[in-house]
Design a protein around this nucleic acid. Structure first.
Lengths: 147, 147
DNA sequence: GATATATAGTTTCAATTGCAACTATATGAT
DNA sequence: ATCATATAGTTGCAATTGAAACTATATATC
């Protein structure tokens, strides 16, 4: 028998929405960033210099989203663009020093929010949650697109 | 140090998106339903007759979403509306026999999709995932709206 | 090296979503 | 009973999102 309350896709969606809403409010209020913009900054902070395509792969963002987020961040002077000598259709993106400075502000705030969410969890529980989420994601991507 | 790939809100969002995308495609293709419409049907299947407000509480849907989903389902003859004698601003919604018939088709399909997603999980893992998700959700709702 | 096909990224347009204003009814105060 | 305030649900409008078309460049074929 089906019970919505115990249906995995429902529980996952509700949990994810609660967390996203909570977090995105913070990003927006404190730093004027939407989630894709924040993701792009986080990825560039880890990778130095990437093409939009590589950013999309690294952060599960589609190319439209990357394009728009990058435009906003370039406009704000947080991200710089330079030619890709190997491929004229593409280009490299990287954080400017302002971008890096902003990242150094956000990263601790993000970690603090995460810590708050996970406050009641043991370290085994955290690991378990991460691993279960990865497996569910894998299963969703793997199973045939049509049931 | 922050790593996007290991950041809980990110993992949660990615997993939830993967599952939602996968599932909503199915609902839409096979039954012409969007997720809120499906949720509304599932809730009414469990509760017989509810006001829009009660539906919203039962399924984490805001009142606008309920209103629009209900309008679509009434138009399709899947949901019926009748006066609420106790409060003229409100009304009761319930499944029509067509609505119940559709539910009896969808419910097994939904359970089958869930089973597929959870195929590699032991029953302890399933319970753990459900409980961890509820706790995260609670933590997100509880923690102050501003960090 | 010209033409055809493929790919990276952007832009346009249509669908979806959510806030804020609105309508109708209910509740509380004088 | 009248007026003020609160609540249920709907609608209008603005912002967000995503799919498809478009532009520019690259690669493959003849």
């Amino acid at each position: 028998m089906l019970t919505l309350d115990r249906f995995l896709p429902y529980r996952l969606s509700v949990a994810s929405n609660a967390v996203s809403t909570r977090i995105s409010l913070s990003y927006r209020k404190r730093f004027g960033l939407k989630i894709p913009e924040w993701r792009l900054i986080a990825i560039l902070a880890e990778h130095e210099s990437l093409t939009p395509q590589e950013i999309g792969q690294a952060g599960e963002l589609d190319k439209i989203t990357v394009s728009r987020a990058a435009a906003v961040l370039i406009e704000r002077g947080l991200v710089a663009q330079r030619r890709n000598p190997g491929d004229g259709r593409s280009h490299f993106l990287s954080l400017t020093s302002d971008g890096r400075a902003l990242y150094l502000e956000i990263a601790p705030a993000a970690l603090a929010m995460e810590a708050k969410l996970l406050a009641g969890f043991s370290s085994e529980e955290r690991k378990a949650l991460e691993s279960l989420l990865r497996r569910i994601e894998q299963a969703a991507l793997t199973s045939a697109p049509e049931v």
